[in-house]
Every structure is written in C-alpha cells, then in structure tokens.
Amino acid sequence: MINVYMPRKVEIISIIPQTDIDYTFRLKSDILPQHGQFLQVSIPKIGEAPISISDYTDEYIELTIRKVGTVTDAIHELKPGDFLFIRGPYGHGFPVEDFKNKNVVIAAGGTGLAPVKSIINRYNRNPKEIKKLSILVGFKSPKDILFEDEIKKWKEKFDVLLTVDNGDETWKGNTGLITKFIPDLKIENPDDTIVIVVGPPMMMKFTCLEFLKRGIPEENIWVSFERKMSCGIGKCGHCKINETYVCLEGPVFNYTKSKQLLD
C-alpha cells in the first residue's frame, strides 16, 4: 500500500528574493504539474505547508513562498544545497487545453500572481497558442511587487497593466484596485474570451463581478481557491466548504461552481 503522506526529498537549487518576505525557491525535480496545482512542503520536526507551484520545467519546480508562519519561517532560513520535502502535486489545475485559440485575460492580486505565472510563461514561449493575452496584476504597494523582471519581459509581448493600491513618492505607475481598470479593458468578443482570476477572496469576488458586467459568460471565468489548501488529500476537512473538498475538486474552479462556495 502506498503511503500518501510520505514526502520525497528534493534539493534547493537556488533562492531568488522577490520582496522582504517573499522568496522563490527553485527545487530539483522532474514533476510536471498542471498549471494551478500545489504541493505540500515540509521540514522534518517543523511541519508542512501547502504552496502553489509558480513555475516548472522537466528539471525543476519553483515555489514562491511568503514568510508568514512557523514552517515558512524555517524554509526561509535554508540555502541552496539544503533539502526540502514535498508531496503532490495535488488538486485540479486550469484547463489550458480548452483555452487554445481564445482571448485570455489574467487578473491576479498579490501572491495570487504565483499560481498563474507558469501559464503566462507558457504563453510567452508559445504566443500562437492563443489569440491574445491581457494581464492585470495588482499589489498593495511598490515594495510588494513580485516577479518584476518577468513582468518587464511580459510587457514586450502582451498587454500588461500593473497597479498598486497605495503608491509612494517614487511610484510613477498606476494606482488603484484592479477593478478600477476592468471597465476600460479592451475586450473585443466576450464570448471568445477566457478570464482567470486569482487573489484574495474579496478581490476575486468583485473582479469576477466586473467581468460579468463586461459581458463575459460565467462559464468563461476561472478562479483558484489556492488559499484554502490544507492536507491536499481530503482527509483533514480544513478546506471543506459545504459538501465540497476544495483540495480534491479544486483549487481551480469554474465560476459557475465557485459562486456557490461561500466560505
């Protein structure tokens, strides 16, 4: 019998600081997950935490981890050459095969950019897979911006709008919530447009409502409840909303389902 709780040992190849509390850990691994899946990451005698996969190749996976608790604090103390333990990947990802030849809009708030970064990089490598990609990404402040170098590269190929809730004296870019900019977003054919929304619960709620106002069909909107993850295998019940185990049926949901999941 396979022990589903048994993790595997992986080496940290490199660590890339993103902000003061967000680091991207590149781990040696041949896992090829679905976009939007997550891993359980652990340190023996410390504990484990669910972490979204922010990117991957056939040689490594990347996890962008915020320092917010006992496990993640310990992970941030590690260095290249050290080891982590992982199990997974878990959950259902975004059905990107169904997005081919569509217009795609990705709206991400804060660390919600991490679970969709691999999708953006997929289209960056294969731009002809879809008709058009538009990216809306928002952060609390300039110091909270993730993946700055990659955002600059995305701007070379795609329509990218970067905004912060609160700027400072050095910030020359957009200011305001993502929802502020959706009414002016160029959407040529709503029925042929796929929308992906990931971020804090309230951000996702009102962002989805704004896209519905723009005529995007409910079935064309996809969201991720990646913040609800816990054990990953539907045993602990911490992710359960009504009768739905988010880690088993999600974390990615079509809006027609997610609008019923009131946590």
Rank of each mutant, 00 (worst) to 15 (best):
Y60M: 05
V41N: 02
G232M: 13
E243M: 09
I194V: 15
C236K: 02
R227C: 03
D159H: 13
G199C: 11
P127G: 05
L32Y: 13
K132C: 04
I106H: 03
P7K: 10
V195P: 05
L113C: 02
V252C: 09
W222L: 07
L113K: 00
N101K: 10
K67S: 09
G215S: 04
M6F: 14
I233M: 15
V246T: 04
I65D: 06
I135Y: 01
D149P: 06
K102M: 12
E188I: 11
I145W: 09
A108H: 13
V164R: 00
V68M: 13
I13L: 08
Y5W: 11
F181G: 08
S29M: 07
V246C: 05
Q37I: 15
L212W: 01
F139E: 01
Y23V: 01
K100P: 06
L212M: 11
H76W: 07
L262Y: 07
G110P: 08
V71T: 12
I182A: 09
N121H: 01
V252E: 02
L161C: 04
I233C: 03
I119Q: 05
N103K: 15
Q18V: 00
L113E: 02
T57H: 14
V164I: 10
G112K: 04
F253R: 05
S141N: 00
P127D: 04
I86L: 15
L136S: 08
K172V: 07
N126I: 12
F139G: 00
N124D: 15
S141L: 02
I216M: 06
